[in-house]
Design a protein around this nucleic acid. Structure first.
Lengths: 341, 341
DNA sequence: CTGAAAGCGCTAACAT
DNA sequence: ATGTTAGCGCTTTCAG
């Protein structure tokens, strides 16, 4: 039963091979593979034996072309960065009990490729996957071909079932933390204003400042883009000036890390000369020096919630189509009282 | 050009739709999509316009069934846990420049499902992907159907091109660190002996101990299984005794975290009563309290290396088929001098 | 209970 | 330059 005599890579064993070896037709093998009725016990056993012998496994591509059920769920991301990696861990844990398998898909292009959501979905849906989780989509299709759940969509909750966290409350938490430490000159390094989460964090910042009766200095409000590299420039604009702030609230951890980079380049001590707080609590935030104070989104729980929502959606169960999870302050070493509070 | 009038999920637009709308045959559309020669400028533009209009995207499943080139690379993992998530980040970063897209696949079953490597590979190879990275495979096929790179294979480097890190040197590093702090009663919590990495870490431990002239107490050598939950039991056996060790070297971070769990349950202070060191440097190791001293494998670099190796392999470039990356000590707060050194 | 045949969406000869 | 045709590996009627 060995094929070692082949010199090069041996071709996949396909259903026809199983059929020929077992002396039955491919139709019968298909029935066995899919557990359909109408196969005698004898034939069943014989075919299963051959399948095991040959190590046959159905091709996902071919199978999905014919039957519109694959038992595979997709999770579509622009890029495998820390944020989506955490969601993936959560979804991966949650999928275990469901009997589905998980396929994570990403082009290399990052969010630079606009419209990746639709492209990836078209590529996979209708064929390879029974449903999809789309992570931080910018454009959401109103009616995709398969059940879809959006995680933290940039436009905020729309027609699609959505999982996100309480960005507004989280931003208030962050700002209050700085205020309570005694900071008054507080800068905000925001994200792109076309993103709902960025707008909400901006709004939370302003609301907490207003509640404390501290006016917002608009020259201390910068615009990053949630990425570490591209946020250095606006971070520098905030810090490289004589009347620099004593604290910065960055709209996500990656831009907070950019602030840390810039502070170091300028010779500023954190938290002595400057307090920095981020948002997300990606694992990387704990690895910086100093470790970053941040607001945690329950990323893994969000991934798990999205997966369960998707499974329910496919099953046709009546489900709530919007889950908002709470945020939480995670104090670490990048924030402290200002030097002369 | 809006389709909002459709009440329910609209069916995928397929190549035939494009052909009909553009007034050409599917063959011509296929040529346009794949950039083949033999299409007039006029037709080309017309078809591209329709494609854009309709938002057509070729189905990966159907395409891959016919042409044995998909421009998609697979990364197959038993489970999306911290270790493979880091590799995925590295591979994701590396794929950007290559023009390939990345598909990560995992059943929910964890490594409990034996033979997942072969199953997933059969499912995807020959059809959906042009090549695969398999993470910590236990059984490696001698001649898979597509180019394959193994990352940290449990059997050690075999016939397959492999990427791993220097487990032996890393284990020596960890053990020496404890010895230099003044520890002599050092326990080792190993992994399953059928894993090459586990054997090498065991070997490095013993070799460093021997070099220091410190005999290994065999009752202080336990066997975990690289997972946090299942390692609690053997960790407890090591610690819950009057002559407990002053330090534990756990063969990976997850089992080191299990040691931390057990230490806490037993009321032991780390590092005052017990020093603990792990292996891997997954992000989670920095998040524990106290943060875990560990030996870093350059996980993201390994993911990137695997991806580049795979791309070269597919291109037929002459490549080195084995990359071993260095390990490094990462001192954090879970190790210190023993109480009475 | 089993097999022959059609066809999923697409690509690749081969005609025209 | 374009269209016709024949499958890729599988599932699914529908006959036998």
């Amino acid at each position: 039963m060995s094929y070692d005599h082949r010199v090069d890579s041996l071709p996949r064993v396909k259903m026809a091979d199983v059929a020929r070896t077992a002396g039955v037709s491919v139709a019968t093998v298909s029935k066995v593979v899919n557990g359909r009725y109408g196969v005698s016990q004898r034939t069943l056993e014989r075919v299963q034996e051959v399948i095991a012998d040959l190590g046959y496994e159905a091709s996902l591509g071919a199978r999905s072309l014919r039957s519109y059920r694959t038992n595979v769920l997709g999770i579509l991301v622009a890029e495998f960065e820390p944020f989506s990696a955490e969601l993936l861990k959560g979804a991966g844990t949650a999928v275990t009990a469901t009997g589905y398998e998980l396929l994570a898909y990403s082009g290399g292009g990052g969010s630079a490729e606009v419209g990746w959501e639709r492209r990836y979905l078209s590529r996979l849906s209708g064929t390879l996957i029974d449903g999809a989780i789309i992570v931080t989509p910018t454009v959401v299709e109103a009616r995709p071909g398969v059940p879809v759940v959006a995680v933290d969509p940039h436009a905020g909750p729309t027609g699609l079932p959505t999982v996100d966290s309480d960005n507004l409350a989280g931003a208030v938490l962050a700002t209050r933390h700085l205020l309570e430490l005694g900071h008054r000159r507080i800068a905000f390094l925001g994200g792109r204003p076309d993103l709902a989460s960025a707008r909400l964090r901006d709004q939370g910042f302003r609301s907490a400042m207003a509640d404390a009766g501290v006016p917002v200095d608009e020259t201390l409000v910068g615009m990053g883009d949630y990425r570490r590299g591209a946020s250095q420039e606006p971070a520098r604009a905030l810090l490289d000036r004589p009347d620099r702030p004593t604290a910065v609230f960055a709209a996500n951890d990656l831009s907070a890390l950019a602030v840390l980079d810039v502070a170091q380049a300028l010779g500023l001590e954190v938290p002595e000369d400057l307090s920095v707080i981020g948002f997300d609590n990606v694992p990387e935030s704990a690895l910086s020096s100093p470790p970053l104070t941040t607001v945690a989104q329950p990323l893994q729980a969000m991934g798990a919630a999205a997966l369960h929502l998707l499974v329910d959606l496919i099953a046709g169960t009546d489900v709530q189509t919007h889950r908002r999870l709470p945020t939480e302050l995670v104090p670490r070493a990048s924030t402290a009282r200002p030097r002369q509070g």
